[in-house]
Design a protein around this nucleic acid. Structure first.
Lengths: 127, 127, 127, 127
DNA sequence: GTGGTCTAGACCACA
DNA sequence: GTGGTCTAGACCACT
């Protein structure tokens, strides 16, 4: 996939931290396999320009990606998605489990059981 | 139910906004019908004391509850849960829909479809 | 221990990233048990003033401490050392293992065996 | 030893400065006597090709080797390891002392004494 | 050109 | 008062 204008497809709002949103978008784009393994993502400066955001804000997101092992930075060359498919699956799994755990906690806090939650979920149109 | 020591049953996490947590706990306790319609909840000062929290923090939560119509303040008597069952159901419905909408969005962002999400959800033990 | 002037005891040089040095000093002060469990450490602004460094630089160090689980931040109150002794031991263990692994790798890269390394180490005065 | 494909035996990590790694590898290969006195090492271009690295990066490493007196450049012939065994020993000694000093400092910063460090070191398998 | 560190200073949310 | 986010812009190391 062409990642050159990756940032131009992101939608940012101002109610949540910008760097978290950038992080989220990239993590999920990789999970959805919209970005291939080993692929280069836009440089900090490019991304900052596309998102109309300060480079430091992008850097913060990129550094967290690297801490998670989802990217590797090569000095003087740029930032690249990891080439390890296990790492991607691990991240994807963690994100999915987080979503599920949060959902279950919320529903239980509302006094719903598994059957009711399942029923409500099935009534919703996903498209 | 005896709401006198309501606050003593809440568990607060100091890394998240306290007033949001108080709000969450009360909203969900009402949704779960652990607090009856028209019941009195502890005063701001009592609650603050029980939670070992600044009264301002409790006030902020109580104000939002009142804005939502979930509580009513009767001068000189204290704060009471609304007597309107429709209001409770409405709040409960909104909270459930929020949780569902959030969950679906997260799973879609991970590239999962309804069937996969359903399957993952069924594999988890709710107890 | 009085942590009020904690920062005034740190020595920083400019050849390594400042935030890493702050991180290092605090991590090791905790490992050495010079700071007690649950103790408050100076606020970002205080520490910045003591070290004559920008608050953002201190914050970066503090955030990494929290990610490691060595500290907890309480909103509006400050930053506190974790109350979990296991966490401290875990950090201490990791730091010691890192040092040992690095030392062994260096000595092996120089063609030294365990006996020679041990001998050289014993000849040095630690005081 | 055949140094013609010296570089092909190096493993480089793109997250650390490449020239430092090249420097490290050569210094330690000489210390380990894997490269004999007076032996020729690959030209900058050859080395760069083998490591798939920019020639400037290799040059920087070679310059530092020469500044340390570990190599000599003979115009039109290439770069050669020094013929002085004292020089090699001196370098080896400096590197070993650096490693030891660093290790001791780290352990002391963790509040460990000589006895504990020795014990931990003996528990590790060097093979 | 790339990423990384640091500063100065604004503004916000929370207690 | 506390921590957290963001900006603008400088300077550095590396390729």
């Amino acid at each position: 996939m062409n990642t050159e204008h990756l940032g131009s497809r992101f939608q940012l709002d101002l109610s949540k931290p910008l760097y978290e949103q950038i992080l989220y978008q990239i993590r999920h784009a990789v999970s959805r396999k919209e970005i291939a393994l080993g692929e280069k993502i836009p440089s900090i400066r490019e991304m900052a320009q596309q998102l109309k955001v300060n480079p430091n804000t992008v850097m913060r997101a990129y550094q967290e990606l690297e801490r998670d092992g989802l990217t590797e930075t090569r000095r003087g060359q740029g930032t690249f998605i990891t080439t390890s498919p296990e790492k991607i699956n691990q991240v994807r799994k963690i994100l999915a489990e987080d979503a599920i755990r949060g959902f279950i906690a919320s529903m239980k806090d509302l006094g719903m059981d598994q059957a009711s939650a399942k029923k409500m979920l099935e009534e919703v149109d996903w498209s």
